[in-house]
Amino acid sequence: MTERQTADRVLADALRAIADQDAHASASPDVEARVMAAFNAVAMARRRRARATVAGLAAAAAIVTAVAVFKFEVRSPKSEQTSHQTSDFKLQTSTLRSAVATAFMPLVYSGVPIVDGHVVRMEVPRASLVSFGLVPVDSVDGAQGTSSGTVLADVIVGDDGLARAVRFVRARPRAEERKDR
């Protein structure tokens, strides 16, 4: 065996010995604890996101349904509620003055071009506030909404019947309204 071959073999033996010595080396238990904590945090965040998505879909479905029902009613010849329908945005203005509202937030069909539309006020499930990242009004100051677990919302509905945007409304206390006048 040449000197070079012998040297190679000695080095190979040494490398194998190092591999054997380190075979059971592992990260400290603290690392495992931190990694598992990270896993739990990620899992919890995913569950929260999933719940929010479900609530959001439910709210969107409720709004779409409510809009559909409303339009069906206002188009009915027997309906007495035609006066509630606004043929343009101006008509709602007087009502809106007496309310505190969020900004309009886009809905699923916000990207569909709109030629004409209406602002329709309706009651939607309180959960829809959460789905838009808002805190339910009564959880903050005990104010408005309705006794049936719903809140007021203005929905922009295109002339094609598709809801484009929504904002949430809270009626001002009468005293505050009088002060403004």
Partner: peptide, 10 residues
């Protein structure tokens, strides 16, 4: 984690 942490650590 148990399967692979050691190899990554080494």
């Amino acid at each position: 984690y148990a399967l692979y942490q050691s190899a990554i650590y080494r």
